[in-house]
Computed example of a mutant assay.
Amino acid sequence: MSQPTAPPAELERKGAFELTFAMILSGTIGVFVVESGASPFNVVFFRCVFGAIALGSYCLARGYFKNHGFTAKKLGLTALGGVFIVFNWVLLFSSYTKTSISVATVVYHTQPFYVVLLGAVLFRDKLTASKVGWLVVAFTGLILVAGVSASDLSGDSTYLVGLGQALLAAVFYALSTVITKRVSGVRPHLIALVQVLLGIPLLLPFAAVGQTADLGARWGWLVGIGLIHTGVMYVLMYSAYQKLPTPKIAVLAFIYPAMAMVMDWLVFGHHVSVVQALGIPLIVTASLGVNLGWRFGPPRRRTPAEQTPSVPETKTAQLVPATSTGGTR
């Protein structure tokens, strides 16, 4: 594969545009899901069908099936990650109608913290004091965003069920992330393609395909979720990851929940309360702190020995974006 010849600054600008557009598209998926009028299982089933067509066509056109890099072990890990990705979509889409697109998306955006916790539990990744501090901040924000009232606890439990589905969707996403991060040497487009292909037989027993016969023009929303939010969005996202440093990826990723909240307000008139709004910056700050390795708490005082200038190294380390190849939105 030929190396890009454009200057690094130009490549980074292109990557920033690609990721921004991908996150804007991602923020509109809730509207497509709700407007389709289909059940969550049907939405995800047809997302997998049309997404497989889009991703398969792209991979075929780019020649990605040659030297694909899959082994039996990598294929097994990809499939396992795909199970969690597919049911993560079902849970998230179901939570939209029980809470709201805004609340479900913000709650769902606690994914990075579950990745940290699962990494510590399953793979004994180091859980530093700073990460624990950011986790506390994030879950404080989560409590505020949840906005659970006494009536939710004593009356209709629909809202609580929706919150639980969004949280479980985030956990499933995190499980897929820690699994697919172990799949190296395979293009993320191919990993995503395997996972949506797996979703078709996986969801067929749950999907009431016959119910879609009366959707009429609303079929366009289902096709859009597969072609736009699974085909176009993934291609843009994976292309951007190759051009951008981790800090910029972490910051631009928050366009997704911001756009989702704007669309929820514009299309459905939903908005978060003042108390819920107080929790959003806590989750955003904590997520950036975890992703960018910020130290939690006041800066540590340096000792006289640490204040002595060190000899610069001949090479500098480059940040590599730790992204889920399975796709989430």
Rank of each mutant, 00 (worst) to 15 (best):
181 K>D: 04
194 V>A: 12
199 G>M: 12
189 H>L: 15
189 H>M: 15
196 V>P: 08
185 G>N: 08
213 A>G: 10
216 G>Q: 09
212 T>K: 00
195 Q>A: 05
195 Q>N: 11
184 S>T: 11
206 F>H: 06
200 I>S: 09
212 T>V: 13
184 S>H: 14
194 V>F: 03
200 I>Y: 11
212 T>M: 14
196 V>F: 13
210 G>M: 02
186 V>R: 00
197 L>Y: 04
214 D>A: 15
216 G>C: 10
187 R>F: 00
198 L>S: 11
210 G>A: 15
192 A>H: 07
202 L>R: 07
215 L>G: 00
216 G>L: 11
192 A>L: 14
190 L>R: 03
216 G>S: 08
205 P>L: 12
195 Q>V: 02
197 L>E: 04
181 K>Q: 14
186 V>W: 00
187 R>A: 13
213 A>K: 07
185 G>W: 00
189 H>Y: 13
212 T>F: 02
185 G>F: 00
195 Q>I: 03
181 K>V: 08
205 P>W: 11
190 L>A: 12
211 Q>M: 13
216 G>H: 06
210 G>V: 08
207 A>Q: 05
201 P>T: 13
205 P>A: 05
185 G>E: 02
190 L>M: 15
202 L>M: 15
199 G>H: 06
194 V>D: 11
208 A>T: 03
206 F>V: 05
207 A>R: 05
188 P>I: 11
181 K>G: 00
181 K>T: 08
181 K>Y: 03
214 D>T: 14
187 R>G: 07
209 V>L: 15
192 A>Y: 08
208 A>R: 09
209 V>K: 00
210 G>S: 14
201 P>E: 13
210 G>L: 07
210 G>E: 13
210 G>N: 05
185 G>S: 04
213 A>T: 13
186 V>P: 01
186 V>M: 02
181 K>W: 04
207 A>E: 07
197 L>F: 10
202 L>E: 06
194 V>P: 06
197 L>T: 10
211 Q>F: 01
197 L>S: 12
182 R>G: 05
209 V>R: 05
216 G>Y: 08
192 A>R: 10
193 L>T: 10
211 Q>K: 14
195 Q>E: 14
213 A>I: 13
216 G>I: 12
184 S>F: 00
209 V>G: 00
198 L>Y: 08
182 R>M: 09
204 L>T: 14
185 G>A: 04
193 L>D: 03
212 T>N: 15
201 P>F: 09
206 F>C: 03
187 R>P: 09
191 I>H: 02
192 A>S: 15
206 F>W: 12
196 V>W: 02
182 R>H: 04
200 I>K: 11
188 P>G: 05
199 G>F: 08
213 A>S: 13
191 I>S: 12
201 P>V: 09
185 G>T: 01
206 F>G: 01
194 V>E: 06
216 G>N: 04
206 F>M: 10
208 A>G: 02
198 L>C: 01
189 H>Q: 14
209 V>Q: 04
199 G>N: 12
183 V>E: 04
212 T>W: 03
182 R>L: 07
215 L>Q: 01
189 H>P: 04
212 T>E: 09
214 D>F: 06
214 D>M: 05
213 A>R: 06
201 P>L: 10
195 Q>L: 06
196 V>E: 10
211 Q>A: 13
184 S>Y: 01
214 D>L: 09
197 L>N: 07
199 G>E: 07
193 L>S: 02
